[in-house]
Design a protein around this nucleic acid. Structure first.
Length: 252
DNA sequence: GCTCATGTTCCCCT
DNA sequence: CAGGGGAACATGAG
């Protein structure tokens, strides 16, 4: 699930814990605490949660809790006496409630770190919500290869995942296999406009809306059709990922 | 039993 | 070095 809008939703939820004292960290599955120790932040207070790309950054005292959600991670806030989920892996027990890091497939994880966060996250490009049209042109300017691979690359732009990239390419009417170097200035403009729209419209929802008029609302149907032209959508592999696109709207 | 899954990383090619 | 393909990771859901 988690791409930029999902993590933005988790950030809003994490605000429940902001300002609260951390009374304990329950490490229910040690393999998901990928760095640091819970004891580092026990007794500290959570600060204001931030997000960069698909990373949630949660200050706690002079340390940071860094969370990545892989494909099946999420966050939950609940009363300390309410039942936990079987896939809750790490629980931050606070005064007045607890924040639960849940993850079924166990990709991703939690790091508790006092050192530079880039050592954990690796190099990340600017967050997709902060990239203006000029910057977008700069970033794609020296890029070779396919547009889908480029937009999925977190080192180039952080936050876009498989669903969002398909949505952006579909809105911009760009074939996901198109070579970046061969895209016209106008097409790059259209891609940026689509990215900006998709980001702004999905952030309040906390997910890429599987709604009418969105590719995301059509892609999982038995026989998916294009919300714009009604053509049967294609499903192929591009840049190693399942890709849904419209052969009429997104010609090569 | 089989296929597929919203992410990342590593290895091997070109 | 840049990029692409494929596998691996772990655990379901359909």
């Amino acid at each position: 699930m988690p791409e930029l809008p999902d993590v933005e939703g988790f950030r809003r939820l994490a605000r429940e814990a902001a300002g609260r004292r951390i009374e304990g960290v329950d490490v229910l599955d040690g393999t998901l605490l990928r760095g640091g120790r819970g004891s580092t932040i026990v007794g500290e207070r959570f600060g204001d949660p931030r997000r960069h790309g698909k990373w949630l950054i949660f200050p706690a005292g002079d340390a940071e809790v860094l969370m990545h959600f892989g494909m099946t991670g999420r966050l939950d806030w609940g009363r300390r006496d309410s039942g936990r989920h079987r896939h809750d892996r790490i629980v931050f027990v606070c005064r007045g409630g607890e924040l639960r890091y849940r993850n079924m497939r166990k990709f991703g994880g939690v790091w508790i770190s006092k050192r530079g966060r880039e050592r954990v996250t690796g190099p990340l490009g600017p967050d997709a919500a902060e990239v203006d049209c000029g910057r977008f042109h700069d970033l794609l300017g020296r890029r070779r290869g396919g547009i889908k691979a480029a937009l999925m690359d977190q080192k180039l732009i952080a936050g876009l995942g498989n669903l969002m990239v398909d949505e952006v390419a579909w809105r911009a009417r760009v074939n996901p296999r198109a070579q970046v170097a061969r895209l016209s200035r106008r097409r790059i403009d259209r891609l940026w406009e689509a990215m900006d729209e998709v980001v702004r419209d999905s952030v309040p929802t906390g997910r890429v809306p599987p709604a009418e008029g969105w590719l995301t609302g059509a892609r999982d149907a038995r026989e998916p059709t294009c919300p714009r032209c009604g053509m049967r959508l294609r499903r192929t592999t591009v840049a190693g990922r399942t890709t849904v696109w419209c052969p009429r709207c997104q010609r090569r």
